[in-house]
Structures are given as structure tokens and as C-alpha cells.
Write a protein that binds this DNA or RNA. Structure first.
Lengths: 334, 334
DNA sequence: ACAGTGCATCGAATCGGTTCGAAGGAGACG
DNA sequence: CGTCTCCTTCGAACCGATTCGATGCACTGT
């Protein structure tokens, strides 16, 4: 493979001249620049990434850490990964995607060997074991999901409290006094997925403030348990006139279950949820819902990260930014 | 950050000694080895990836090229990505994931800058524009999906012809003489997704051999068009007693559509499909189907690639390997 | 004619590893 | 006792880029 030395020889200049012609960091006469570019084309020269990384201490790669839980409803994760990859590329970065189970160790390996210039953490838990490792790393980090301590990192997440309030309010306005709430599966609470309790607690608080009865259930996540559970819940609470679903697996299964029982929406039951537009389209969900905006969250995380990588010193205070929930009315309530 | 020089100084040896102690390529007395390891721990030393790549011409990174089509039913892709990532890690490699729209250019960028030791291409089309680029690259490549020319690369794919035959045969044995076939969306044919016509043509051939009527439709891919089309097809072909679905979006929507029309499976209609076990579970699909084995395909692709990367010269002939389709009977036919 | 300025280019050092050849010392052997 | 091996270890070269300081040269102003 052609090196910068080959190009230099071919163009009859020194290696440093080629480097400057490429980077534009010093002025080069137009004749030599042309000669150099010719040589580059003829030889098909591309700078070696490793050598460049060594010389500049920059890899132009972002490490993306994705946690896949076997028990989880997976299609949701991809919605974050794609926008992140796109945003990174727009800023000139490639994505090193890490899915290892032992994420803290993998994170240490990646950061301390200087394979990446920055880190994006997805699906961050309240007491996420990756965060202490990230804090000790040389590279800046950005994350989606709210951890307990947010100093030294940028955090992006949906405002789940406000989301819950919006949905409860939406049902209250329509006179509902008895509501079923389906939360994420128990496991999400246990491993510290803060969005789970942030949403649930805010919903319960709001309901009790208005004297609304709310029946909260941690949803199942794998079929056929999901369908069975939904049926049990509906048997349990015939008095409920509305349902709030904060659970991907449950809401994806809901149309079939309701249909089987002959329950019409919104005539017999009002249903609202919280999921992304894309997810809704994928599963043809006809429910009014708060938009989770994975696209915006992913892109924002990358943009914040890029800012810090470009300017490691300044770049302002670390911040937690909550994306404002927007409700999309699909007419599933009355 | 600590370098190998810092470790050497601390341990009172030369840099090369540290390197040999780490790699084990020359024998080192146990006392010095211990001293070196102590120094490494105390300083928290990790070799710099860029420097190592430069010296060894190995990055220990695999480039994974994933094509995401906006019009595609996305959850399927993730099923390939995860096993690939896992298999790579088991072999000591990390994954650089590229999702760029202009894949050939991105591929050239990645390979010619030596960012990776090898390439995995997903969702390969018949006349895939990435393949000529890959063939010129220094790095070996491995792919999932069957291209028109397979020399110089390793190819893994499901045996779609045999899959079609198995399913047609399954229905023929049960006496079906009039079958609806739903293929991938038109767009897949147009961009050269060979699996689409390989399956369809084999199914049609088999049907005509037995004098079975087969009505073939290219499926829609986005809701609500999917449901509408399924209804139209069922209206069109009341005489059909069975259905073969080779389309993720259609089969995911099918339970609801059939239910709405009061069509019972298998009493009123026999249904078979082709999808992975995981996909079926995700959408609670109660249909007998050929397993697409994304897990096996992804892992095999990585393993073949690793073999070539480890031993660039030998490693035997390039090969096309078709995974044998297995049918999972879920009782949706009679 | 001469110092001063700016442009274009070069050479050498550097980044942090790996690897080859050589060298020093201990032990085996004739 | 001299020579040969083996075991350890060292020093230097190298991988392929970037970047700093220096140099040569043309041009300006005095």
C-alpha cells in the first residue's frame, strides 16, 4: 500500500510537504499541490488510520455501548443506534459498537487503549456500572438514560415524569376515574432503569392528587406470557375505563388481546401509551401516545459529545437535558 | 497515560523486554516478568491501540456494513448484528459498524485507511456495489446474502430454494391445490435481493410441477398499506386454501387481519412462513415456518472471516455455504 | 546595497508500540 | 581451559503519519 513517503517521492517533495498539502495547515504553492494530488490519485493513497491516530492522538472513532438484555423487547434499541451512527458520520466519526455483557470491563479496555475519542452509553441505568469507568477515562462521554450521579457526563433523556403527567391529565380531562397502568417488566426496576419508576411514580402521584384509582402492574416481556397477563389484568379490573401502557411488549400485543375480548377502543376502553412514532408504525399501534423521540435523543447525545471532543477543555458545564414529551393523538381515548 | 516506556523504567528493564513479557514471544525470567507485571498494574498501563496497529499492521477490528433501507421492516437486521458482534468478540475483535448510505465509498474509506482487518457485509444484493470495492481491498471479506459473483469472498446464506420447496411440499402433502404466495416487497426485487426471487421462483416451479395454482403477490412493507393489501388479496382469492408468506411485515400483521375477517388457522386457512424463531416470538406468530437462522449465518460469517484474517495466505478456497432450512411445525396447517 | 518580511519547502523529532540482531553470562562438554 | 549453547536482556530500526524549527529565496522599503 502506498504511504505518504511514496507520494512524496512521486511528487518530488518531502513527506512533510505532502502532509501540509493534505491538511492545509501551511501554505503550499499551487503547482506542488497539484503535483501532490496527482501522485495521490495515481497511487491511490489513503492515510493510514493507525499512524494518524498515533501522531495526532485522535482516532475519529466514537465508542457506542449498547446493552442488550436477553429478556428485553429488542426492536426498540435499533431506533437509537441508527441516528447515533448517522450523526457521528456527519461529524466525521465512525462508530465502534460494543455489545459485550461485561460492559464495564469492555469500556475500560476500549478507553484505556485509546481506541476511541469519545463514548456514548445507551440505556443507562440508575446505578450503572459503566459510569465510574467512564468517569476515569480520558475520553468524554455522553449518555441516553438518567443515572444517579450526573457529574462529568452529558445526559439526555425523555422527561418521563412530565410524560406520565400528560397522559394522566389527558385521561382525567375525559372523566376517567379508574385507570390500569402497565409499567416495564419487573426486571427493569431491579436493574435500575430509572425511566420505569420515574414514569410510574409520577403517574401514581398525579392520579392520587385527583383521587383517581390507578392499578399498577409490571408487564411481562415475552410471549405468550404477555397475552396471558393482559387478559388476567382485564379480568381483574373490569371497572377500569382507561389504560396507560409504558411497556413495548405489552402495547405491541394489546390490539390482538383487546380484539379477542371484543373490547373496542375507545368505545369500551381508552388506551394511551408511550412509544416512538416509528415503533407505533411498525406494530400498527392505533393508540394516542407520548413520543419517545429516540432520534432526537441519539443525535443530541452525539452532538454534545462531538462538542467536547473538539474542545476538551471548555465546552461548558455538563448538563442533563430532558426532551420535552409531545403527545400524538390517535383518537384512542374519549 | 502510561506508555510502555514508563513501565520499562519503573521495572528497570528495556522497552523491548516489556513487550516480550507481554506477548510471550521470547522467554523472560520469572523475576523480571513479575516486576514488569507489578509496574503495569501500578501504572495502569494498556498498550495504545494505534501504535500497536501501526507496528503490527493489525487493528483487531472487523468492519460491519449494514444497509438500512428506510422502507424496510427493520427489526430483522438486529438479529444478525448481535451474533456477529458476539462472535467477533469471542475471537478478540471489536466491531466498527458502518451504516452509511453510500456504502461503497464508505467501504473504500475504511479498508484503504486500514481501520479494520476484515469486512462483514450484511444483506448483500445480487449486484451489490460493495463487492467490487471489497475485492480490491487488502482485507478479506465475508458476507450474508448471495451476490452474482462469489469469487474472492466467503458467502453465507439460507438455502431459499430448498426452503420454498419444503414449504410447498408441506402444503401439497396436505392436499392444498390453491396457494397464495406473498413475497418481499417489490423494492427488494428491484435492488437485487436475490433471496426474494430465489424463494419465489423455486416455489412457483414446485407448484407448477404438481399442478398447484399459486398466486404470487409482492407484499407491502409499511402500515397501514400492509393490512389493506392483505385484505385485498384475501378478497381476490377466496379459493385459496393456504398461504405462504415470505415477508416480515406481512406475516407480523397477518394474525390481526385474519382474526378481523374471522378466518381461523388452520381450520379455514393453512399458513406457513419463513422467519427466525426470535422474530416469531417477538410477534407471537403461531405459524409453521422455515427457520432463517440469522444467528448461525452471522456467526459463520465471522468465523470464516477470522480464519482468513489469521492466515491470509492459505485458509482454503472461498466458498458459498447454504444453511440448511429447518421447518418448525407450529400446527398452522392441515 | 542591506535588513526585514513572508512564502514555500525540507529535515528531524515524535507518537507508542513490535521485532530483529547482538551481546553478556552461565552452564555443558570435550 | 577453551568453545559451544542456551537463556535473558538490550539497543536500534521500523511502522506511517504530523508538526516544529530552520532554511532558502524573492520581494519590499530605505
Amino acid at each position: 500500500m502506498a504511504t505518504i513517503g511514496d507520494v512524496a517521492r512521486r511528487a518530488g517533495v518531502s513527506r512533510s510537504t505532502v502532509s501540509y498539502a493534505l491538511s492545509g495547515k501551511r501554505s503550499i504553492s499551487s503547482e506542488t499541490r497539484d503535483r501532490i494530488h496527482e501522485a495521490i490519485v495515481e497511487l491511490g493513497f489513503t492515510p493510514n488510520a493507525g499512524a494518524r491516530a498515533l501522531a495526532t492522538s485522535q482516532t475519529m472513532v466514537i465508542g457506542l455501548f449498547v446493552h442488550f438484555f436477553a429478556d428485553e423487547f429488542s426492536p426498540a434499541m435499533l431506533q437509537y443506534v441508527l441516528p447515533i451512527s448517522d450523526a457521528a458520520r456527519e461529524a466525521g466519526y465512525d462508530i465502534l459498537m460494543v455489545t459485550e455483557t461485561d460492559a464495564p470491563q469492555a469500556l475500560r479496555r476500549i478507553t484505556s487503549s485509546d481506541m476511541v475519542d469519545g463514548i456514548v452509553l445507551l440505556n443507562v441505568a440508575h446505578n450503572d456500572a459503566r459510569i465510574p469507568v467512564l468517569r476515569e477515562a480520558r475520553q468524554p462521554g455522553s449518555m441516553v438514560g438518567l443515572p444517579s450521579h450526573t457529574d462529568g457526563v452529558d445526559v439526555f433523556d425523555l422527561d418521563f415524569e412530565e410524560s406520565a403527567r400528560i397522559l394522566v391529565e389527558h385521561l382525567r380531562e375525559r372523566g376517567h376515574r379508574s385507570i390500569i397502568l402497565i409499567t416495564p417488566q419487573q426486571h427493569v426496576f431491579e436493574r435500575g432503569g430509572a425511566y420505569a419508576w420515574r414514569f410510574r411514580d409520577a403517574a401514581l402521584e398525579r392520579a392520587s392528587r385527583y383521587g383517581i384509582q390507578m392499578f399498577s402492574y409490571a408487564g411481562e416481556t415475552q410471549q405468550p406470557a404477555v397475552n396471558r397477563q393482559l387478559n388476567e389484568i382485564l379480568d381483574d379490573r373490569p371497572e377500569a375505563t382507561a389504560m396507560i401502557v409504558h411497556n413495548d411488549a405489552a402495547i405491541a400485543a394489546l390490539p390482538t388481546v383487546l380484539h379477542d375480548r371484543g373490547i373496542g377502543v375507545p368505545d369500551d376502553l381508552s388506551v394511551v401509551g408511550i412509544f416512538s412514532e416509528e415503533f407505533g408504525r411498525l406494530f400498527s399501534l392505533p393508540y394516542t401516545a407520548v413520543e419517545t423521540s429516540p432520534d432526537e435523543l441519539g443525535r443530541s447525545a452525539v452532538q454534545a459529545l462531538v462538542r467536547r471532543m473538539v474542545d476538551p477543555a471548555a465546552a461548558g458545564e455538563y448538563a442533563v437535558r430532558f426532551v420535552e414529551p409531545r403527545i400524538t393523538d390517535r383518537g384512542s381515548t374519549r
